[in-house]
């Protein structure tokens, strides 16, 4: 759901950029306060992995494809939605500037949809579901699906405000396709958490809430 420059008037992109900058500032604050020698390798590997896997479009039917976004994954593993803002901002800057994937004037909007909304929905729905079910992977998969779906609806509203999509058909189509793409998001998020916890078991405290604030 990388919005290209052509899909949005420049001034609207500017407004989303200003809001995104507030979250980027908070994400840098998170990095300053929360990052440790142990966490930096995880942040680096997640950034590289998410960059690579976002190039991996899987067919989801109806002539459409989709890939992992990863905001829920990062937020759950590192125990903060700001971790998702940090990693997704970095990945989106590289994608936009070097590969033209997602626009520059629309980068703030993309950071808001995928990093901020994806991270916050992923993080808080994970914790709600985890408290209710005590199941890590099921909760993570559903949270990731929700993160993908809600981000897509937010993107549809932005596209309506930009005059690019009509409101209801935009919401219906974005919702339909990302309900399917969200299945990819959910499955890969749960699988990736499993694999990364095998390699770095010390992160399981953050995921199961042992030391969570």
């Amino acid at each position: 759901m990388h919005i290209p420059d052509a899909f949005m008037p420049i001034w609207q992109g500017g407004i989303y950029w200003i809001i995104a900058l507030i979250f980027i500032f908070l994400a840098l604050k998170w990095a300053r306060n929360e990052l440790t020698e142990d966490k930096i390798p995880m942040v680096a590997v997640l950034s590289a992995g998410i960059f690579a896997i976002q190039a991996f479009n899987l067919p989801v039917g109806f002539g459409t494809s989709g890939h992992l976004v990863g905001g829920a994954l990062v937020a759950i593993l590192l125990g903060s939605p700001y971790a998702a803002v940090f990693v997704l901002t970095l990945v989106l800057i590289i994608q936009g500037v070097i590969f033209g994937d997602g626009g520059l004037t629309t980068m703030g909007a993309n950071i808001l949809n995928m990093g901020v909304i994806g991270g916050f929905i992923g993080y808080y729905s994970y914790w709600g579901l985890h408290q209710a079910t005590k199941k890590v992977y099921l909760s993570a998969a559903i949270a990731a699906w929700l993160a993908c779906f809600i981000s897509a609806l937010a993107c549809a509203v932005m596209m309506w405000l930009a005059g690019t999509f009509p409101l209801v058909p935009g919401l219906v189509a974005m919702g339909t396709y990302h309900a399917l793409i969200g299945i990819v998001e959910g499955a890969i998020t749960a699988g990736a958490i499993y694999l990364l916890l095998q390699a770095r078991p010390e992160f399981s405290d953050a995921v199961t809430g042992v030391n969570a604030a």
Binding site: V45, F51, T64
Partner: peptide, 30 residues
Amino acid sequence: GLVVAILIGIVAVFVASGNPDGLESTALVV
């Protein structure tokens, strides 16, 4: 982690779907 990420990227070059993504598909629908 880096090797796995690069492998994912390499496989993606050969097998990733060329279909439009959700946003592009929506643009085509509207």
